[in-house]
Computed example of a mutant assay.
Amino acid sequence: MEKPVPQEAIALADELRNVLHHVFRRIRQEGDSDPSGLSLQHRMLLSTISQTPGIGVAELARMEKLRGPTMSGHIKSLEAAGLIRRDTPDPEDRRRSGLLLSEHGAAVLEDIRNRRRDWLARKLAQLPPEGAQALRNALIYLNEIGE
């Protein structure tokens, strides 16, 4: 039988979840001003393709919990915009070709990430030194939680 969770830990979990939700929302909003006009879904797909180069359309659909035809539509849009390209077909299965970011897609994704990072860096630069140090210390424990 599991030990009951202390009320202080429950309160801290609620507060942390709420704060992280607001911070992530603000970071995402910085990407919303993306001059390419990409939807949130397309930005997420670019990020996933960037992290898993060569991923197939079916696997990407499973990862993102989208139906195949829906994913195919997104892929066609991203291809038409010149943001992604298909890799050479798999010699074992000629029907399957992995997805890769194009140079343009990589540049757009880097721009979005830089804009988000810069927004966060400006906010962090406004903190007093002890606040920045407290965040550095908290990162150790947040990383432990995330593992």
Score class of each variant (00 low, 15 high):
residue 57 V to I: 12
residue 61 A to G: 11
residue 108 V to E: 07
residue 42 H to Y: 05
residue 16 L to D: 03
residue 64 E to N: 02
residue 67 R to L: 15
residue 131 G to M: 10
residue 136 R to G: 09
residue 137 N to W: 04
residue 69 P to Y: 02
residue 32 D to W: 04
residue 77 S to A: 09
residue 121 A to N: 12
residue 91 P to H: 01
residue 68 G to T: 14
residue 60 L to P: 06
residue 28 R to G: 13
residue 19 V to N: 06
residue 94 R to F: 13
residue 68 G to R: 14
residue 91 P to A: 02
residue 53 P to M: 04
residue 50 S to K: 01
residue 76 K to N: 04
residue 130 E to D: 12
residue 96 R to S: 07
residue 78 L to G: 10
residue 55 I to C: 00
residue 50 S to A: 12
residue 64 E to Y: 00
residue 125 A to Y: 04
residue 73 G to I: 08
residue 125 A to R: 13
residue 60 L to T: 04
residue 15 E to N: 13
residue 37 G to S: 07
residue 2 E to V: 05
residue 120 L to S: 13
residue 36 S to N: 08
residue 141 Y to D: 14
residue 4 P to L: 14
residue 53 P to W: 02
residue 74 H to C: 00
residue 63 M to H: 10
residue 39 S to H: 07
residue 60 L to G: 06
residue 133 Q to D: 08
residue 107 A to F: 07
residue 80 A to W: 03
residue 26 R to G: 04
residue 54 G to N: 11
residue 99 L to P: 15
residue 140 I to Y: 08
residue 45 L to Q: 08
residue 48 T to G: 01
residue 122 R to Y: 01
residue 2 E to K: 12
residue 39 S to L: 08
residue 32 D to S: 10
residue 134 A to P: 02
residue 85 R to V: 08
residue 108 V to F: 02
residue 71 M to D: 08
residue 19 V to G: 03
residue 13 A to P: 03
residue 146 G to R: 14
residue 142 L to C: 13
residue 10 I to M: 10
residue 18 N to M: 03
residue 24 F to Q: 11
residue 121 A to I: 15
residue 141 Y to W: 15
residue 33 S to M: 02
residue 42 H to F: 01
residue 1 M to C: 05
residue 137 N to M: 10
residue 37 G to F: 10
residue 9 A to M: 10
residue 17 R to C: 11
residue 60 L to W: 09
residue 3 K to E: 14
residue 119 W to Q: 03
residue 78 L to Q: 10
residue 92 E to A: 08
residue 27 I to K: 06
residue 85 R to Q: 14
residue 113 R to Y: 07
residue 105 G to H: 04
residue 50 S to Q: 05
residue 145 I to A: 13
residue 121 A to K: 13
residue 141 Y to M: 12
residue 82 G to R: 05
residue 133 Q to S: 09
residue 60 L to F: 00
residue 130 E to F: 01
residue 124 L to C: 08
residue 55 I to W: 00
residue 58 A to W: 02
residue 6 P to T: 00
residue 42 H to Q: 13
residue 21 H to C: 06
residue 1 M to S: 14
residue 140 I to W: 08
residue 132 A to W: 05
residue 109 L to A: 04
residue 95 R to Y: 07
residue 117 R to C: 05
residue 29 Q to G: 04
residue 94 R to Y: 08
residue 139 L to C: 15
residue 37 G to A: 04
residue 7 Q to D: 11
residue 103 E to H: 10
residue 141 Y to S: 11
residue 102 S to P: 08
residue 26 R to T: 14
residue 59 E to N: 04
residue 121 A to E: 15
residue 24 F to N: 13
residue 47 S to T: 07
residue 37 G to R: 08
residue 47 S to C: 05
